[in-house]
């Protein structure tokens, strides 16, 4: 089972590396977002209680999250392509547990997003964001966990879809807003009440919160803070629910109804 999972994850990763356009697109777009919005808003970004934080710096963890989101979207689209082009059929008739299909996809997608975000993480010291070695490990762990969450959510959404066009629609009205309302673009405490409520139940908000903390506090303090623990619990539940539902979904086979 693990060999099958690793083979599928390896395929996902290799496929990504072999398509230079995808590498450039998925790393380049968040970086451009970050540079343009970062410099663009730096002059006007003056939220109360956050003096001394440039928008470039504020937006940085949000871009990390965006990379996870994009990587998950790309790997979810491959599910639809695989079904169309047939690779998936070959896997479905092989003697591998269906769960291996979910895990292979999720691990592969996670590996892809980790490569991107690790590259981006190298920029942190240049920005003047202090990150201790332990803090960096913490950030990487949080990123991996969130990547699993996004990839399994993408899997769940894409599994029943028959066209990539349909998936683009879902992505624009569901996945992108999830990121927009995560506090990546603007601080959560200066928005209208209803939006604040939506943001608080959005798991991406909690993933971002987890991601921000190690940049601004000692890892030892972060790990015991109630803010961190609550958000960690939310993210863990999110990951578990999405993985579980994905597994339930792939187990379900097309079934005939009673003949009239």
């Amino acid at each position: 089972m693990m060999r099958a999972v690793m083979a599928l994850a390896w395929r996902e990763f290799t496929r990504f590396i072999r398509q230079p356009h995808r590498v450039i697109g998925s790393v380049g777009q968040p970086v451009l977002f970050w540079l343009f919005l970062g410099f663009g808003f730096s002059g006007s970004f003056r939220p109360a209680g956050m003096e001394g934080v440039t928008y470039l710096e504020f937006f940085y963890p949000g871009v990390l999250l965006m990379m996870l989101l994009f990587a998950s979207i790309f790997s979810s689209i491959t599910i639809i392509e695989d079904r169309d082009q047939g690779f998936l059929q070959g896997v479905l008739v092989a003697p591998v547990p269906r769960i291996a299909i979910v895990l292979g996809k999720v691990l592969g997608g996670t590996a892809v997003s980790m490569v991107q975000s690790l590259l981006f993480l190298l920029l942190a010291p240049i920005l003047g964001l202090p990150l201790s070695p332990l803090g960096a490990v913490l950030v990487v762990l949080i990123l991996s966990l969130s990547a699993v969450g996004f990839t399994s959510l993408g899997f769940l959404l894409a599994w029943s879809m028959r066209s990539t066009a349909g998936f683009h629609a879902i992505m624009m009205i569901f996945l992108m807003p999830m990121w927009m309302l995560s506090g990546a673009l603007f601080p959560i405490n200066h928005v209208p009440g209803w939006m604040h409520a939506v943001m608080e139940v959005n798991p991406a908000t909690h993933a971002l919160r987890l991601l921000r903390l190690p940049f601004y506090a000692k890892p030892a303090d972060v790990l015991v803070s109630s803010e961190f623990l609550v958000s960690l619990a939310v993210v863990l539940i999110w990951v578990a629910v999405c993985l579980y539902l994905s597994m339930v979904r792939v187990q379900r086979r097309e079934r005939g109804v009673p003949t009239p």
């Binding site: 060999r3 099958a4 690793m6 083979a7 599928l8 390896w10 395929r11 290799t14 496929r15 072999r18 398509q19 082009q85 047939g86 690779f87 998936l88 059929q89 070959g90 896997v91 092989a94 003697p95 591998v96």
Partner: peptide
């Protein structure tokens, strides 16, 4: 299958290796 069930971005050998791993 009627439609190819291989990954066209991978090599012949890599496709066979994945298939072997699945089995």
């Amino acid at each position: 299958f009627q439609n190819p069930a291989v990954d066209k971005h991978l090599s012949v050998g890599e496709n066979l290796a994945i298939h072997a791993d699945l089995y």
